[in-house]
């Protein structure tokens, strides 16, 4: 599983430009199902199972895209100005390295600040790709880059960029691998453009028109020094989302997941997230409405180039989702 995760996080795929991740996903899932399609926004939709009487049509969604930056100007001296794709924070950028879609590398630094301790604005940051003039620089306005940082295996815990949400992608692939039978029609969606507003999930949910929707994504934790107050910790089990700032999870689904976790002795936590949302928000309001929820993987340092998750949580999430899909669901 770690190998798959490493492959996934080391692949480049900022929002709207997920094609490399898409290819890798399709390569990995095609042995589990032949029923795979790519829609107009680039979502991968993989279907497994055949609905039996009492079964449901279930959409699972993990997003392929990651946050990044986009060039807004190449200046006279070959420095690049940029803006963000998704929720990038300036404090996480200085001294960071980026890689453009064409392979070029760059480092981010900052203009001289009036006060060395102030948090800079994006207007004050620039990318240096090692060129001295605009003419030399092959990059143009509109070119995208992602943050670069090697994958670290700490044993039980792993650290990388883009674990948000390649960890969800990896979990879905592993669920597909292990899913032997299901009474449901299951649609595994590997979605696009989540980081810029759950856009891929909006259109894929419309196309699938499922009975239930579940997103698999990361959530922040409250277990680090003087962190924001949050009842989720790393390593204490996957989090069953009750709400986030964009969605109230369907209480029947929350209860159903709790029952599964308790009966199968799978550790779990309950999540109330006050900033952020996931693909489930888009699924819930699709067409006439879709009861929706989320399974969240606790993750420290979300949207920094060094996100950290615990492999126990990942494996327990796989178990929880497998149990969920294997049995009839009666809400």
């Amino acid at each position: 599983m770690k190998e798959l995760i490493q492959q996934l996080v080391e692949t480049t795929g900022p929002s709207g430009y997920e094609s490399k991740v898409r290819d890798l996903v399709i390569e990995n899932i095609s042995r589990y199902t032949k029923d795979v399609k790519v829609d107009a926004l680039g979502n991968v939709i993989a279907h497994m199972g055949n609905k039996k009487p009492g079964g449901l049509s279930i959409m699972l969604s993990a997003h392929m895209d990651e946050i990044g930056v986009i060039v807004t100007h190449v200046d006279d001296n070959g420095f690049l100005r940029f803006t963000t794709i998704g929720g990038v924070r300036a404090v996480n950028c200085i001294g960071g390295r980026v890689q453009f879609l064409n392979g070029l590398h760059g480092v981010i630094f900052v203009e001289k600040l009036e006060n060395a301790n102030q948090v800079p604005t994006f207007d004050q940051l620039y990318i240096d790709c090692g060129f001295s003039t605009r003419k030399e620089c092959p990059l143009q306005v509109g070119d995208l880059a992602i943050f670069e940082r090697p994958f670290i295996d700490m044993g039980k815990r792993i650290v990388s960029k883009a674990l948000d949400d390649r960890i969800g992608v990896a979990i879905q692939i592993d669920v597909m691998r292990q899913l032997k039978q299901t009474p449901h029609d299951v649609f595994f969606v590997f979605s696009t453009q989540e980081e810029v507003g759950t856009r891929g999930a909006t259109t894929s949910a419309y196309g699938i028109n499922p009975d239930l929707g579940i997103s698999i994504d990361v959530t922040v934790t409250g277990d680090t020094p003087k962190s924001a107050r949050m009842s989720v910790s790393l390593g204490k089990g996957p989090a069953i989302k009750v709400r986030d700032s964009g969605m109230l999870a369907d209480p029947r689904l929350v209860q159903h997941f709790i029952q599964i976790a308790e009966s199968k002795k799978i550790p779990y936590q309950l999540e109330v997230l006050e900033g952020g949302t996931t693909d489930a928000r888009a699924i819930q309001t699709s067409r006439a409405g879709v009861p929706s929820g989320s399974i969240s993987i606790p993750c420290r340092y979300v949207h920094s180039p060094s996100e950290m998750v615990d492999m126990d949580d990942v494996e327990n999430a796989v178990r929880l989702i497998l149990s969920f899909l294997s049995d009839p669901i009666n809400l």
Binding site: G246, M247, Q284, T285, G289
Partner: peptide, 8 residues
């Protein structure tokens, strides 16, 4: 919260 009822 989300206007979900009216949207759907």
């Amino acid at each position: 919260e989300t206007l979900a009822g009216a949207i759907t």
